[in-house]
Simulated scan of single mutants.
Amino acid sequence: MSLSQIPDNDELMQRISRDLVDSYDEELELELEDRAFDGEGHYQVDDKAARQAYFRELFRLQGELVKLQDWVQNTGQKVVILFEGRDAAGKGGVIKRITQRLNPRVARVAALPAPNDRERTQWYFQRYVAHLPAAGEMVLFDRSWYNRAGVERVMGFCDEAEYEEFFRTVPDFERMLVRSGIKLIKYWFSITDEEQHLRFLGRIHDPLKQWKLSPMDLESRRRWEAYTKAKETMLERTHIEEAPWWLVPADDKKKARLNCISHLLGQLPYQAVQHPPVELPARVRNPDYLRHPPPPEMIVPQVY
């Protein structure tokens, strides 16, 4: 860009404003995933005023999350947040909104696949320990070591001795994490039988969501009552003072996100970190510098 091409202040502010709108469009794109399925093959349209109110509050909370991230990084905090719940309960949606405007080097998501043959022979918690945060980091677990108390129990992937050993071990494991300086926050996203039924139908009828349905998800639907019993046992035996469970009513996805983020912000005594003003330095311009245009065949075709 030559000196004559540098925009004046008004044009510069207009460009910045357009970039800001584009960033909000990313959130709108995410919201397209949340079309409400009515069970008859039709999608409902949200009330415009309610939708605007939701976005206003979401953007405000995301601004607070940026402050939280800054505080975590500057004070060397270590934060672990567990998200558990039934299939289609909305865990992934809230994780997306929490991390959307954060630095992925500070706020990481851990979504572990099923253990491989080697991991099955390890200490049960070993593969989760590898993902715990260092100072200045937040880790959000999209499902966690509580797989043993839920899917493994219901689907028969662990035996009775392994199941009982988990409950004997997990309180001590979590207390050890807390004593080491980790702030551990545990959320269970709770949805009704009817709501999960509708969300599964929505995935079946939406080609953009069908990949979310696995044979395990379908089987979990059949075993609803077994999952309920497993959840109740899990909450009863692992709700400890050092790391209590927090239940998020999640039939309304948008309210669940806002309530969860608001609660999360209240669990940490973060403060805005003061930084010196940032000034953009002038680019050094050398008279002998010449930018060579790339060969045309290297340029991506401008289809749009």
Rank of each mutant, 00 (worst) to 15 (best):
Thr121Gln: 10
Glu162Lys: 02
Ser4Pro: 14
Phe83Asn: 08
Val106Met: 03
Ala107Tyr: 12
Asn147Met: 01
Pro293Thr: 08
Trp246Ser: 15
Gly202Cys: 07
Phe167Gln: 02
Pro133Asn: 01
Glu64Asp: 14
Lys255Arg: 13
Lys229Phe: 07
Tyr128Trp: 05
Val94Tyr: 04
Pro104Asn: 09
Met298Gly: 02
Gly202Asn: 10
Glu137Thr: 02
Ala149Ser: 06
Val303Phe: 01
Lys48Glu: 08
Asp38Tyr: 00
Asn116Ile: 00
Glu165Ala: 10
Pro281Cys: 09
Tyr270Gly: 15
Ile261His: 03
Lys78Phe: 05
Val178Glu: 04
Lys255Gly: 12
Leu198Tyr: 12
Ala149Asp: 03
Pro277Cys: 04
Asp47Cys: 12
Phe37Ser: 03
Val129Glu: 00
Ile261Pro: 03
His131Asp: 05
Glu242Ile: 08
Leu65Val: 15
Gly202Phe: 12
Arg105Tyr: 09
Arg148Asp: 02
Pro113His: 00
Ser214Trp: 03
Val278Pro: 04
Asn286Ser: 13
Tyr24Met: 10
Arg291Ser: 09
Asp46Thr: 03
Leu247Ser: 13
Ala50Ile: 09
Glu57Trp: 11
Leu198Gln: 08
Met216Val: 15
Asp87Pro: 01
Gly63Met: 07
Asp47Gln: 10
Pro269Asp: 06
Arg179Met: 04
Phe37Thr: 00
Arg203Gly: 11
Leu264His: 03
Cys260Ser: 09
Gln267Arg: 13
Glu119Asn: 02
Gln62Met: 01
Met234Thr: 03
Ala134Gln: 10
Pro294Thr: 02
Asp217Phe: 13
Trp245Pro: 14
Lys254Leu: 10
Gly85Met: 08
Met298Cys: 04
Tyr289Leu: 15
Trp211Leu: 09
Met1Thr: 05
Leu102Phe: 00
Val139Asn: 03
Leu65Cys: 14
Glu241Ile: 05
Ser4Asn: 12
Ser2Gly: 13
Asp251Ser: 12
Leu184Ala: 06
Gly85Thr: 11
Gly76Pro: 00
Met298Phe: 04
Gly92Gln: 05
